[in-house]
């Protein structure tokens, strides 16, 4: 059960999206998310959804994987949509006057936009992690944050920390599994009882896990020092990432989409 958790889910495939530079992909994702919130009418919404579908098809990530990424947020989407449906009271009431609740046409559109926005946002960001390996991602974040070095933020160190954290997720999952089995063998009951009982039952698992994490971190720090690791300053990389033609093309496309959406906003009536 615990092995089902897939964090930093990377889906290995050979596609244009996979081959894009990670730095560009992060910029594209951020720009796309900004666009999601720029849209003011159904034209813009159409452009957003179409772009997303096109990107998904290009990335060769199966539809099933995309659905899997939305699954955890279904509840949040429904909850916020319903809340907004009743909260937004401007516009024409669609329900009979005698009812004590009212739903307006504006509220309906608002709730719909909100739901689509959350879903597209999650799909866009999970496409980023599906098509980019964790190492590429940390490299990209390091590069993108490098201007912060000017104000003495240790960007390299943060990048190393992130790489290590990602590296140890599977190890920790395995460790958790082992400790859970060991405590179950001593009769620990993890599956029954109320919420309080279950939280209490986690103590025998969390404490050994903490202890071993610290031990591991200590060992790792020691091993890294033995191999002369100083902080990340001035380190070179085995894989040199270069911006290529398709990266520039992707940037041009996102600029065009953004301009398009701004134009659609100015020339067509706003619905929200």
């Amino acid at each position: 059960m615990i092995k089902d958790i897939t964090i930093g889910q990377y889906f290995s495939a050979k596609s244009v999206i996979h081959r894009l530079d990670a730095r560009i992909k992060i910029i594209l994702t951020i720009a796309f998310i900004v666009n999601i919130f720029l849209i003011k009418n159904f034209w813009g919404l159409g452009v957003i959804v179409a772009t997303l579908i096109a990107t998904t098809l290009l990335s060769k990530v199966p539809f099933k994987m995309i659905l899997k990424s939305i699954k955890p947020i279904v509840f949040i989407v429904i909850f916020t949509a319903v809340l907004n449906l009743f909260y937004m009271q401007d516009g024409r009431n669609l329900l009979p006057e005698s009812w004590f609740i009212s739903i307006t046409d504006k509220g309906l559109i608002f709730a719909f936009f909100l739901a689509v926005r959350i879903i597209t946002l999650v799909i866009a960001s999970s496409l980023l992690t599906y098509t980019t390996t964790p190492t590429e991602l940390t490299f990209a974040i390091e590069k993108l944050l490098s201007p912060l070095k000017l104000i003495k933020v240790p960007v390299n160190t943060f990048a190393t920390m992130m790489t290590l954290a990602l590296r140890f997720i599977p190890t920790l999952i395995e460790e958790t599994d082992k400790i859970m089995s060991a405590q179950k063998a001593r009769g620990a009951d993890l599956e029954t009882g109320g919420i309080i009982d279950r939280i209490k039952a986690m103590v025998p698992i969390l404490i050994p896990l903490f202890v071993s994490s610290f031990r591991r971190a200590n060992d790792l720090a020691f091993a890294m020092e033995c191999r002369c690791y100083t902080d990340g300053e001035g380190r070179t990389r085995m894989k040199q990432n270069k911006i290529s033609f398709k990266d520039i093309a992707a940037l041009v496309i996102i600029v065009l989409i953004t301009t398009g959406i701004v134009l659609l906003n100015t020339f067509f009536t706003h619905v929200i």
Binding site: A182, P204, P208
Partner: peptide, 25 residues
């Protein structure tokens, strides 16, 4: 059943409490 490297499953405050975990369950 006592697992491999069972010392990594210890968690209680005292030795006594840890040995008592099984019987308590």
């Amino acid at each position: 059943l006592c697992f491999q490297y069972p010392e990594y499953q210890l968690f209680e405050e005292t030795v006594y409490k840890d040995i008592a975990f099984g019987p308590k369950n």
